[in-house]
Design a protein around this nucleic acid. Structure first.
Lengths: 246, 246
DNA sequence: TGCCGTATGTTCGATAGTGCACAGAGCGAA
DNA sequence: TTCGCTCTGTGCACTATCGAACATACGGCA
């Protein structure tokens, strides 16, 4: 009974899904040893092809994986919030990532040295199995993003992206049109036009660096199918976790 | 000495990179137990969201992972040849894939029951570590494909795609414009126009369902940077294998 | 040899998005 | 309160690609 209380208390304080699942196992000590950090908006967590020092388990923070082309144009290939981990390449056996990781929404995260993760990924550990599941969802989401980039309009993708952010953040969050342009791979003025349209429809509102979700349902109708697809992947992942830990 | 000869002989007959690496380990028995199959062009190896029965290690065969949108439009998110495995979702803990897997170039592959793979993935096995590395490369390639779909012209992507196929196949391989259109997410007539242009430049030739690479170097110049990026990922993977098995 | 189905060639207008440029408007600092 | 910077709005010419339709050509089969 005392144990139950202790775990329950722990679960409240650890707001990352992967770490939360670990609380139910012997790996609780791992979490206690991790460092809690505040990630500032715009901070570059990883630069492309540079050594990864820490992996991050976001709590409030939201981190984007950004791919930059040779000519400097960028596009977001994935977004990582409290369901995941930043730095899966460490887990997959690498030392670097080809993408940049940028903090999109400031907030807290727990971090762990990359070399400690490698050590902890002792074979058969619950952490490894959780990260495999997360990788599966992440791959599915990136795959869908290929199709999304190929086929969907800027407006659809803007709606999708705002909804995705909103799932991690309050209704209103700080965000510039130029930042959105960089993640969607569109012009800043193209974003302004689409944003104005969504505002005219009373689905969102915004002002000088802030976006506000007004009508989530309406936004879903304007978004492409990719938004629901993403939610489904992470939902599937969560349903597999109990089986995995059993 | 007798052992060495036996292994060397085995390496020649196993033309899949992952299995080839396993030959150097105790896991050789695994390969001997696997089934060799001929994959027919156009065969659907997996349907979206349906149970996966076998995983495949292509030898000559080349398999594409195809994402289909709700409206039926398709795009290729990844391509799997003798460096990889079809069915990483099994390895990642799932039972299905959200994509369809289609044979692009007929040829041989070794296959293994999904449930046997799950059993064999004993934690810390060389196979698991090889598949983690492969997953890392695969994720990097898909990520780049997001940017490629976003930014690069149909002609660039056509050149990239022909080069990629050529790395797995002879200079000449069977392929319809309409098939290419489905994998690049473009119109058939758009592909015909770009193909005609590349032929005018004497980089490729083609005729009723066959494509011939005439000038690989020239094609690389017309291709986007993504082609070299992909090669680099798989090359990195191969260089990590010896370390991993040490 | 000739026919027919399939593969490729070519055209049309329509459109989403680009690149660039500059105008206007909000907000903080002085 | 004013200035100046940053953020957002708007215009314009331009391009790639789309969607659809029809034209042509190859090549296997009768």
């Amino acid at each position: 009974m005392a144990l139950t209380t202790r775990l329950a208390a722990g679960e409240v304080s650890v707001r990352n899904g992967i770490l939360g699942a670990l609380l139910r196992t012997e790996y609780r000590r791992l979490i206690d040893e991790m460092e809690q950090v505040e990630l500032q908006r715009g901070a570059i967590v990883y630069r492309a092809n540079q050594q990864i020092e820490y992996v991050y388990f976001p709590e409030d923070a939201v981190v984007a994986m950004i791919d930059a082309m040779d000519d400097g144009r960028t596009v977001e290939v994935g977004i990582i919030g409290n369901e995941g981990m930043v730095g899966i390449n460490i887990f997959l056996g690498g030392l670097t990532t080809p993408d940049r990781a940028v903090v999109q929404l400031a907030g807290s995260a727990r971090r762990m040295r990359a070399r400690d993760l490698r050590k902890e990924i002792r074979f058969g550990s619950p952490l490894q199995r959780l990260l495999l599941l997360y990788t599966q969802a992440f791959v599915a989401v990136i795959s869908q993003s290929v199709a999304c980039a190929q086929y969907h309009s800027v407006e659809q993708r803007l709606a999708r992206w705002i909804l995705t952010m909103h799932d991690y953040a309050p209704r209103e969050f700080p965000m510039l049109h130029s930042t959105v342009a960089a993640v969607l791979g569109a012009r800043r003025s193209g974003i302004s036009i689409c944003a104005a349209h969504l505002r005219d429809l009373r689905l969102i509102d915004y002002m000088r660096g802030h976006i506000l979700v007004v009508d989530k349902r309406g936004l879903e109708k304007k978004s492409c199918e990719c938004y629901q697809f993403i939610r489904k992947q992470y939902k599937n992942m969560r349903t597999q976790v109990p089986k995995l830990l059993a």
